[in-house]
């Protein structure tokens, strides 16, 4: 009990004495924690968006508009028999027009309805058991003919097959790149915080070199000498994380929550509860600052 009080009072004494470097370290931790606090939910959201896209991946098989009813019925059976095809859905030109109108709900809706003719082709929509089997199914739809050229299994099919796929890949590529950039920024900020905490502790060791010398001389154990510095680092981390969490909470209440009432999108984005997010951020800040102190103590406080 007496020891813990001693460690705490020594740490606070040191923080008061070397205010400037502590403030620099705290500010960096605030910025890092804030960024992480925004990044993590966004990354989680984009990940779930990407899986949604993945799940939606299917194949659209466009038919010529003059495909006969018999051809369509025969093709329906053939498609259902292809391995990895989970479901087959036929969509007539009328059905396609309805869906387009659905998608373009709003200004363009009227103009679709105003079209006299229907230019949309009939379509088969294939659902796959797994997105990874996309290529296999595509190959099964267009086996090579005697000359080795891929040919559709039915004369009614209008190649190429499945333009949907390209869109999905693009979405994935873009979110992937954004994710990498954000992760790199977060990593750099984490390193900066670590180094600034380490620097704070190094200055603190320097400021207290007399105390350290006396402690060694009278036989204080290594950990007795190190604990106050360790606690000092962790106080810096907790203070930074605390301020950042306060700002995040403010931002959530004043910006995100009102928006969430208006837009379903933001509701989808908040894939992570606020409490686990805060717990994670505080844990990360404490870990980083403890690591920063630990590294410095190893380097500069050989006992």
């Amino acid at each position: 009990m007496g020891r813990i009080a001693f460690f705490l009072s020594e740490a606070i004494r040191a923080l008061r004495r070397s205010a400037a470097p502590s403030v620099a370290a705290i500010v960096t931790i605030v910025v890092t924690t804030l960024l992480l606090g925004v990044l993590v939910p966004v990354l989680r959201a984009s990940e779930s968006k990407a899986t949604e896209v993945r799940e939606q991946i299917g194949l659209q098989v466009f038919l010529y508009r003059d495909a006969t009813k018999a051809e369509i019925e025969a093709l329906d059976k053939e498609l259902a028999a292809i391995p990895h095809v989970a479901a087959v859905e036929y969509c007539s030109p009328a059905c396609a027009k309805r869906e387009l109108a659905d998608e373009l709900r709003g200004d363009l809706e009227g103009s679709i309805q105003e079209l006299n003719s229907n230019p949309l082709p009939p379509t088969f929509k294939l659902e796959l058991d797994d997105a990874d089997n996309l290529e296999a199914v595509r190959a099964a739809l267009t086996p090579p003919n005697s000359a080795g050229k891929p040919t559709p299994i039915s004369a009614a099919i209008d190649p190429p097959i499945g333009q949907d796929r390209e869109n999905a890949t693009k979405i994935r590529e873009v979110t992937g790149a954004v994710k990498i950039v954000l992760l790199v920024i977060a990593a750099l900020l984490l390193i900066a915080s670590l180094l600034l905490v380490a620097n704070t502790i190094r200055l603190s060791i320097y400021a207290r070199r007399r105390e350290v010398e006396v402690m060694r001389l009278v036989g204080a154990t290594n950990w007795f000498i190190r604990w106050p510095f360790m606690i000092e680092g962790v106080i810096v981390g907790v203070a930074g994380a605390g301020i950042a969490v306060g700002i995040l909470l403010l931002g959530k209440v004043t910006i995100v929550d009102p928006l969430a009432d208006d837009f379903a999108l933001i509701d989808n984005l908040s894939t992570m509860g606020f409490a686990p997010l805060v717990a994670m951020l505080v844990a990360a800040a404490v870990l980083v600052s403890a690591l920063g102190s630990g590294i410095t103590l190893r380097r500069f406080l050989r006992v």
Partner: peptide, 11 residues
């Protein structure tokens, strides 16, 4: 007293 504190001597 500091010399005693840092070797964990009781108060």
């Amino acid at each position: 007293a500091y010399a005693l504190q840092v070797i964990g001597e009781p108060r």
